[in-house]
Design a protein around this nucleic acid. Structure first.
Lengths: 251, 251
DNA sequence: CCGCCTCATGCGGGAATTTGCACGAATATG
DNA sequence: CATATTCGTGCAAATTCCCGCATGAGGCGG
């Protein structure tokens, strides 16, 4: 990986998360902490960031109200996204569902090795425009505008031609006995079909989706390989899912 | 391989990946790293890229790219977009090519009656997210990131299943005798195929694309139904095309 | 056809850069 | 104050860079 590319990535992380932790970046980019520290020192000298013990902070503190609120609402999702993206291995084929949570996964996808990304969401595809190493396969079909994903027979057929290693599924609701559900019938059918074509299916859910049910059933809990949840979630709220035999992955 | 061709390839890689790694390019083009380094040095001197240890990076960081390109949509392009969008009739099926000019068409599409829009560009599809009356069909395939359009066999097959009334084609160059051309072979093949599937094909071109030729031929002028040009364009620059039998539509 | 020139290319070698590791100093944390 | 990270520096290995040179292809005038 190029030094400048790495520094660009660090800046990206800084802009996205509002902070950089040397150790974590070193792990995620697979270089020594020394290298990251050197980068941070160098970039601090150029005035690109402020060096602090353990990592770095933006040169100018973010605006208190707006970005604070934004951070608050999506911090959880960012965590989920980063964790899920970290599951990707070189050479794998990943299917990314549409939705804001999966969009967060797209933003955090590793940039230092090659993999194939399949999606039926033009929004997700757009996120990948400047990704340096991902091969992107777009699934076409009738565009369901509410959630901006391709659906219908054409999409189903196209999906059948791929066999993803991992499917990151987005849902609107998850329930210990009623399983996964969403608001639209076509969408549900597509998600089910993708899951059936995929080797593993992981669903990333934030707190407000727990113990909820939406009109259209997608899959039972038994059909998924695991659910990715915010680390902040208490054991109490997770126990019903654990009891149902679902693997819990705290981000 | 020609030097200039190699340098063009390097620029393509740079645009596509956001970085160039000398070693990798040398392997893939089967020349010594010294040659690539010489190219990079030369191109850096011309201001085409920024030399970094291990390869090269784009001259401008990818961040301002977004706003810069958005600003680039000049009055000329808006005119063209509005005029082309005005050609759409209720119930028709419209195929929109990828590109900044066609994006401008997407922004001006009529919102007071229903029609079907087909596109192989996730960017264009994204523009239609909040369109009230358009049915959007997304064509899937391998995503060519430089121009953000789906290409390849899957895209070709999907295109064959639709029969648009109008295809709004985007090109990088148009020439009185050499016809329409673009920078990428796959792209050219896709555009040609769409045109063959469509009832009518219109190309919208701004002044700087006139009398130019790009590496990959798409179609002869005889194959298009008309060219949409800025109203400000002089008769002199249009005469060669009029003589070639092309219908000229001043926006 | 020949000699001459130009230019791109690959190669060798020394310089420069980068990177990971080790070790003592500095800093946070309870 | 004790302990655990984290930091900075020196150092060695690896990689990358640049310069000069030889080779060979292609162009051009004689």
């Amino acid at each position: 990986m190029l030094t400048s590319q790495r520094q660009t990535t660090i800046l990206d992380i800084l802009r996205r998360d509002g902070q950089v932790i040397a150790k974590r970046v070193a792990e995620s980019l697979d270089v020594s902490e020394d290298t990251i520290r050197r980068d941070l020192r160098e970039m601090a000298a150029e005035g690109l960031l402020k060096r602090v013990h353990g990592g770095a902070m933006p040169i100018a503190p973010p605006l208190p109200d707006f970005s604070a609120r934004r951070n608050l609402s999506s911090n959880e999702k960012r965590e989920l996204g980063a964790y899920a993206a970290g599951m990707v291995r070189p050479g794998q084929t990943i299917f990314l569902d549409g939705g804001t949570t999966t969009e967060e996964i797209a933003r955090h996808l590793p940039r230092d090795f090659a993999f194939t990304l399949v999606t039926h969401s033009p929004t997700i595809a757009g996120e990948l425009e400047h990704h340096p190493t991902a091969d992107v396969i777009l699934i076409g079909g009738w565009l369901y505008k509410h959630s901006m994903v391709a659906t219908g027979a054409a999409a189903m057929a196209a999906i059948s031609t791929v066999r993803p290693d991992i499917f990151f599924l987005g849902v609107t609701a998850i329930h210990p006995s009623r399983g996964l559900s969403t608001g639209n019938f076509e969408e549900a059918a597509i998600k089910r079909h993708i899951a059936q074509c995929s080797d593993q299916t992981f669903v990333a859910v934030t707190q407000e989706k727990l113990d909820a049910v939406s009109p259209c059933h997608i899959l039972p809990l038994a059909a998924i390989s695991g659910m990715i949840v915010p680390r902040s979630l208490g054991e109490d709220s997770l126990k019903p899912y654990r009891n149902a035999g679902v693997a819990i992955l705290p981000a």
